[in-house]
């Protein structure tokens, strides 16, 4: 049985700033340490990256792995969510989760819409819990985004609104940087950027 829900709100930044913050992978383990104290990339194949995020509880390290995919300029997919270690009892054995996050400019081109679509494939026995799962995932998404929004707001105060040139320095690492620079860099087409 499939349960689909959306989490949609506006972010007070440009699409380039929102995408930059998402691809700025070096902050995941530090700024978002409550949610992903350990982040490990398993492999990368083009715009797909398999990652493991784990927590430690005493001697046991547990968490989940998933495949993330970037579809430039501003779409992100997450799927193949599995428990780590695989033998661990987990909700991920029962539920198949797929998310699609899109950023696009608001109609007045001043802000960015963050549009998350979540598809849950649930066994019938878990169907009554779908709203509770939806509420928890929504809260998690908002909490993490709040940290990114605070980071973006400070960057705007320092570098100026819409200025993402700090990401373009050659020593700065981020996921799928060539694609990001191609779409949001100095020589990108203006349609991909907003005021």
């Amino acid at each position: 049985m499939q349960h689909v829900f959306e989490v949609v709100y506006e972010l007070d930044c440009t699409v380039g700033e929102a995408v930059g913050a998402y691809l700025d992978v070096e902050h995941y383990m530090h700024l978002h340490k409550v949610y992903a104290p350990r982040y490990e990339a398993l492999w990368q194949d083009g715009t797909k990256v398999a990652v493991v995020q784990t927590w430690r509880a005493g001697p046991v390290r547990f968490g989940s792995s998933c495949t993330t995919e970037y579809q430039p300029p501003a779409c992100f997919l997450n799927y193949d969510l599995k428990p780590v270690p695989a033998w661990m009892p987990s909700i991920h054995h029962l539920i198949k989760t797929r998310t699609e996050l899109r950023y696009y400019p608001t109609d007045d081109q001043k802000r960015t819409v963050s549009h998350l679509t979540v598809k849950l494939d649930l066994p019938w026995i878990m169907w009554p819990l779908r709203k509770m799962i939806e509420a928890r995932l929504t809260r998690l998404k908002i909490e993490k985004d709040q940290e990114d929004v605070d980071m973006i707001a400070r960057s705007q105060r320092i570098f100026g609104r819409g200025n993402i040139s700090h990401y373009f320095r050659k020593d700065v690492f981020m996921l799928h940087k060539d694609a990001f620079v191609a779409h949001f860099g100095p020589s990108a087409m203006p349609k991909d950027r907003i005021a």
């Binding site: 992978v25 990339a41 990368q44 020593d171 700065v172 690492f173 981020m174 940087k177 060539d178 620079v181």
Partner: peptide, 13 residues
Amino acid sequence: IMKTLRVPSVAFD
């Protein structure tokens, strides 16, 4: 931490 991903590219050295 990101050793697997930090490969040279046009925009990253």
